[in-house]
Design a protein around this nucleic acid. Structure first.
Lengths: 152, 152
DNA sequence: CTGAACGCGGACCGAAGAAGTCGGATATTG
DNA sequence: CAATATCCGACTTCTTCGGTCCGCGTTCAG
């Protein structure tokens, strides 16, 4: 409940890894899969998704692999998750496609949709670059650049 | 991915319903299940969970049922979700129980943990009362009372 | 005191989605 | 040509969610 999939995790990890190695022209799926210890074939499919979404550029053949399509600072965590897991909604009852039918049930959904947007906003404000940077010095914390207002 | 379960939805709906009927001493699971159109037996179990967590007070026997244990304003959406779905983490890799083992993989998780806390903060700032109020007049929007800072 | 209405709680099952595997086609380079 | 890549769909396996069933304890009305 309310957790992102391993695929999305893997995708974020992979992008972070690519962001940390800007010098290399391309890294193969296997390279990344070895660096972390995730199954190579699975990672490959994830990277393919990210390529289709325009976040990565791929190059087949020997010495091929993947590279970031844009600057790491221009890629948000939201885009990655969206590319891998599709559009995400907090509510099971995604209003729009007459899912809640007759029942006037979904009075809850209205305020929860705001929460949904808030979370999306937070995710959009985080870039791959942020992920790649924020780890080495344990004490140092980058100052808040994301400030999100929630109105019910 | 990243959506809350129907059980949590049902729980929120039920609490909202109870908040809207403060006069009645107790409403049975069936009452609420009929109001919205959700399966009664399932709702019953959810209400039991909420009772065990201290959010509701139950009364067995004829004319029994459930009532809010506290004021609707004192119950947060976070508590409800937590009571029903258990502790929630964005990351599949909940650090703490040596889940990420040897792999130095989870460099991602550190910043994502912040996101997790941010979301939890938003959820904590929403009360059942908010849910019960925010619907009738479509144009009117309560002003932002939740302002969340995210620091990476 | 007896039975109906209710909460309690465990066992169970089907469906759906996530995680991961396999196999083959295509492209690129040495 | 051969090795190394991406690419892409089908498939199996595993877990979890949504939901049902049944039996028990409690309360209250007649």
């Amino acid at each position: 409940m309310l957790k992102l999939t391993k695929k999305a995790d893997y995708g974020l990890m992979a992008l972070k890894y690519l962001a940390e190695h800007p010098e290399t022209p391309a890294l193969s799926a296997k390279d990344v899969a070895d660096a972390y210890v995730i199954p190579a074939q699975l990672l490959a499919k994830i990277l393919q998704l990210l390529t289709k979404s325009g976040l990565l550029r791929s190059h087949a053949g020997m010495n091929g692999g993947y590279a970031l399509a844009r600057d790491a600072r221009q890629i948000s965590a939201y885009e990655v998750i969206h590319a891998i897991d599709g559009p995400f909604f907090i509510t099971s009852c995604t209003k729009g496609t007459k899912s809640c039918e007759l029942t006037p049930s979904c009075t809850i959904k209205e305020p929860l949709a705001r929460v949904n947007e808030t979370i999306a906003g937070v995710l959009k404000s985080i870039s791959i670059q942020d992920l790649a940077e924020s780890e080495p010095p344990p004490g140092r914390a980058r100052e808040a650049q994301a400030l999100v207002a929630l109105t019910l």
